[in-house]
Every structure is written in structure tokens, then in C-alpha cells.
């Protein structure tokens, strides 16, 4: 029986409203599929590009314990990228195509990774703030409507729990250290605070995708709600470290039960999104380089596998 698109869309929305998960082979509106491919792949790209700023510090980690922790963390990010690409692939797009979009600058990834990691304290600040912000988003996404995406998020959240602790522990150690170390920590907070707040995206008034995403339960909270949640959680953690958040307007608002905070520099936000952040070019260059230099390896492995299976067929036939 053929149904009209309107009927199918209505049924689809009813399923979502009832809290059902959508699975890969289920009928879904084309826009739902496209939105998911875009969002999941952006998320995957963010994991992969996110390996670079921290990866730069693996060889310079100050102790063996810190080195293995950082190495394991950056490796996890590769794993998380992989889970997410797999989730996107269920929607009928290949990983190579997604990489192509990333490498040609067509796809977006989280702008935070276009900022440079210039000191060891940045490993602390990234783990604490950037992972902290990401976790808020990701916990929400474990209940997202698309099954493969939600399952990838469950796995990721389980593994991520050590990332933020790893970062915060670095911050604690620095803040309990020498004057120079504490300055290093404060400087990192100064540089990463505002970009971390920007990670939640434009304000609700400016956000083009929020309404539809909420309706489809891709998102369950708005950008501004999530940002507020992050600030409320993070301020006491900064106080515990004895560090000052670089926002003169930051103040507890008794009436709202939340922190008030200053205006985000949206000009900077859009500048980085549009490709003119401090490291956009370096990040894409690094990804392209790895991909291009790996081409002969991927081809060789495939050629070898084909030869082997041809051999098997021949030996069976004989």
C-alpha cells in the first residue's frame, strides 16, 4: 500500500512524540536523514580534528603518567570519531565521502579546535572545559531519537568520563604548584573560557536548526539552556581551583537561580566558524596530509586482500 508523504511524515512524528527510537532502515523524512548526516558527521569530525591540539602535546608531556593518560585520551577521540562515522554510515553515506567533505572544507567541526594549545596547562583546560562542555551536550544526545547515534553516544559517554577528570587533575596539580604553574593555569583558563561557551553554538534567537531539531528530538535542550547549565556547573570548579573566570559581569543571580554572565564575542565566533580562526588552516592541512600520505597504504591493503581472496577461490576450484 502506498502512503502519501504527508501521512508517512505524520506517522513518523507520532513515533517520535511517543518516544520511540528511529532505526536505520525505518522510513524517515529526507530532511531528518540529511540533518542527521550533517550533525553526526560534524560531531565525528570534531573528535578527529580535536585529536590535533592535544596530540601536539603528547611528545612533550611532563611525566610518564601524564603521557600515557593523554595518549589514551587522544586515542579515545579517534575511537569516538570512528563510532560516530559508523552511525552516520547507517544513513547511507560512506566514511570516505564524509572525509572528503571534511578535507575540502565543506563540512564543519567544532570551532574550539581551531584555537591553539600553547602550554601544558591547555591540556588541563581542554580536558576540564572543552570536554566538560562536550559532555553536557553528549549526555543529552544519549536520548536522541536516532538509535545508532544514541547508542554511539552511550558508548562515548561511558568512555569520556575519565577525560574531564584527567583535565581537572592537571589543573589541580598546577594550582597547587609553583607561582609559575598557577599563572600557567590561569592563562589557560583565560584563553579557553570564552571559546568553551561558544561551543554551545549561537543563541537560541540566532540558531537556525534548533526548532526542527527539538521537534525531532535530535536535541532536547536549547543552546542557551545547555550553556547556562555548563556555566552553573563550572564556576564552583573554578573557585575550587582558586582561579578567576575572565568575565567581569559574572554574578550569581539569586532570583533566577543561575549565574548571569557577560556578552559573548559573536564576531569572533563567526570569524572562526567561517574559517578564519587561528588554526583552521593548520588543522585541515594536518588532516589532509595524513589522509593523502595514507592513500597508498589503504590501496595496498585492499589490493593484498583481493589477491588473497582470489588465491582462495583458485585453490578451492582446483
Amino acid at each position: 500500500m502506498e502512503h502519501s508523504i504527508e501521512y508517512l511524515e505524520k506517522q513518523f512524528q507520532d513515533r517520535i512524540d511517543r518516544g520511540e527510537n528511529i532505526e536505520a532502515k525505518d522510513w524517515m523524512p529526507e530532511k531528518y536523514r540529511k540533518t542527521h548526516i550533517r550533525q553526526i558527521s560534524q560531531h565525528a569530525h570534531s573528535e578527529i580534528v580535536g585529536m590535533l591540539p592535544e596530540g601536539n602535546w603528547i611528545s612533550r608531556a611532563p611525566s610518564l603518567r601524564r603521557k600515557v593518560a593523554l595518549l589514551a585520551k587522544v586515542q579515545d577521540e579517534a575511537g569516538h570519531g570512528l563510532y560516530l562515522y559508523s552511525a552516520a554510515e547507517t544513513l547511507g553515506i560512506s566514511r570516505d565521502e564524509l572525509f572528503h567533505q571534511l578535507h575540502t572544507g565543506k563540512a564543519k567541526y567544532s570551532s574550539i579546535f581551531n584555537y591553539p594549545a600553547v602550554s601544558w596547562a591547555d591540556m588541563g583546560a581542554i580536558g576540564w572545559l572543552v570536554d566538560g562542555a562536550a559532555i553536557i551536550n553528549q549526555v543529552m544526545l544519549t536520548r536522541t531519537s536516532y538509535g545508532p547515534y544514541a547508542r554511539a553516544m552511550v558508548r562515548i559517554c561511558k568512555e569520556e568520563s575519565f577525560h574531564q577528570r584527567q583535565g581537572y587533575e592537571i589543573m589541580i596539580t598546577l594550582c597547587n604548584g609553583t607561582e609559575e604553574q598557577k599563572e600557567m593555569a590561569q592563562d589557560a583558563l583565560n584563553r579557553w573560557w570564552w571559546p568553551s561557551l561558544m561551543m554551545f553554538g549561537p543563541t537560541d534567537a540566532e540558531s537556525t536548526h534548533t526548532e526542527q531539531s527539538m521537534k525531532w528530538k535530535i536535541k532536547r535542550k536549547t543552546n542557551d539552556e545547555l550553556r547556562q547549565q555548563f556555566i552553573d556547573i563550572t564556576i564552583p570548579q573554578a573557585e575550587f581551583l582558586g582561579l578567576t573566570v575572565p568575565d567581569p559581569d559574572l554574578k550569581w543571580n539569586e532570583e533566577r537561580g543561575h549565574y548571569d554572565f557577560g556578552e559573548i564575542d559573536w564576531t569572533e565566533f563567526w570569524q572562526v566558524v567561517k574559517g578564519y580562526g587561528p588554526c583552521n588552516k593548520e588543522r585541515l592541512k594536518a588532516r589532509n596530509k595524513a589522509w593523502d600520505e595514507g592513500a597508498w597504504v589503504r590501496e595496498a591493503a585492499l589490493a593484498y586482500a583481493e589477491k588473497q581472496s582470489a588465491k582462495k577461490i583458485i585453490s578451492k576450484a582446483v
Partner: peptide, 15 residues
């Protein structure tokens, strides 16, 4: 090997 983290020929190989 740690210098290669994030720069491998495929995600799986990188890991």
C-alpha cells in the same frame, strides 16, 4: 609511535 597519534593512514590503524 606516539608522534603518529592523529596522523595514521586510517582511523583504525591510528588506534
Amino acid at each position: 609511535l606516539s608522534e603518529l597519534c592523529g596522523h595514521g593512514p586510517s582511523l583504525e590503524t591510528d588506534i
